[in-house]
Design a protein around this nucleic acid. Structure first.
Length: 115
DNA sequence: CCAATGACCGTAA
DNA sequence: GTTACGGCCATTG
């Protein structure tokens, strides 16, 4: 499996997502320095080792939906997010207006969080 | 090397 | 607001 710099980058960025926040695949790709490789990010996360060290559940698609086709895993992600205080709709939807951590700028996030 | 696959995105209707 | 298409690109067979 080697370093696979791309994987490393992706994991590093995902690990930086604060608790109670979410980020889109494209956002992760951009933070990695690879804009436009959102799809590859998705692939990388799919290959994420179950070490539990990587908060993969905080990564969702740009439409605020949980893009995991597998029902079991998607429900798991749903529970994880709920446990962190992220409000997920019944249709597996998240309000990106509030929980978007695109820039990983904590102050900005806090500003957005009001009520 | 080529073809198929996929936890996606942006734009258009 | 939503659905449908084409285009990304890394990984696997």
């Amino acid at each position: 499996m080697e370093t696979t710099s791309f994987y490393e980058q992706v994991y590093a960025v995902v690990r930086l997502i604060p608790r109670g926040m979410v980020m889109s695949y494209s956002g992760v790709a951009r933070q990695c320095g690879y804009p436009g490789r959102a799809r590859a990010v998705g692939y990388a996360l799919h290959a994420t080792p179950p070490t539990g060290r990587i908060p993969w559940w905080r990564v969702i698609n740009a439409q605020g939906r949980l893009s995991i086709p597998n029902n079991e895993i998607s429900s798991l992600q749903h529970d994880k997010l709920i446990a962190e205080g992220v409000q997920v709709g019944e249709d597996l939807r998240v309000n990106m207006r509030i929980y978007d951590g695109e820039m990983i700028v904590y102050e900005k996030i806090r500003l957005k969080r009001k009520t």
